[in-house]
Design a protein around this nucleic acid. Structure first.
Length: 104
DNA sequence: CGGGTGACTTTAC
DNA sequence: CGTAAAGCCACCC
């Protein structure tokens, strides 16, 4: 099981209507300082598996990865449809933050 | 083995 | 508030 697969698995585990951060995910898989790699994996895994990358945001709840979607509104639309509260252009991390469990 | 890359994070100006 | 740079680690070639 490569880190790449772990990331895909964890992201796929994020509950509907919940949000997680690159940092938390990276930490859960044992890479607390390589959050950027998480995003890279999502980019590699997109199209192959149904990875809800729109539920992964930066530590402030900002949709930093929106520019990698077909349209800038895609993430926002999906999250709102799932019941995620928004504060401006960021998700409400106080309510929807989800911490993945460590996977080995 | 080494260089390139990344959707982050933090610090600094 | 905005931009810049460094640190970070695993994958790919």
């Amino acid at each position: 099981m490569t880190i790449n697969e772990k990331i895909n698995k964890i992201v796929a585990t994020i509950p509907l209507g919940k949000l997680s951060t690159y940092g938390d995910i990276a930490k859960a898989i044992g890479m607390r300082s390589s959050a950027r790699y998480v995003g890279w994996v999502l980019n590699s895994g997109k199209g192959k598996s149904e990875i809800p990358a729109h539920r992964v945001v930066n530590r402030n709840g900002e949709l930093t990865g929106k520019m990698h979607f077909p349209t800038p509104n895609y993430m926002r639309e999906m999250l709102e449809a799932e019941g995620v509260a928004f504060i401006g252009d960021s998700g409400d991390m106080k309510i929807h933050r989800w911490s993945p469990e460590e996977v080995k």
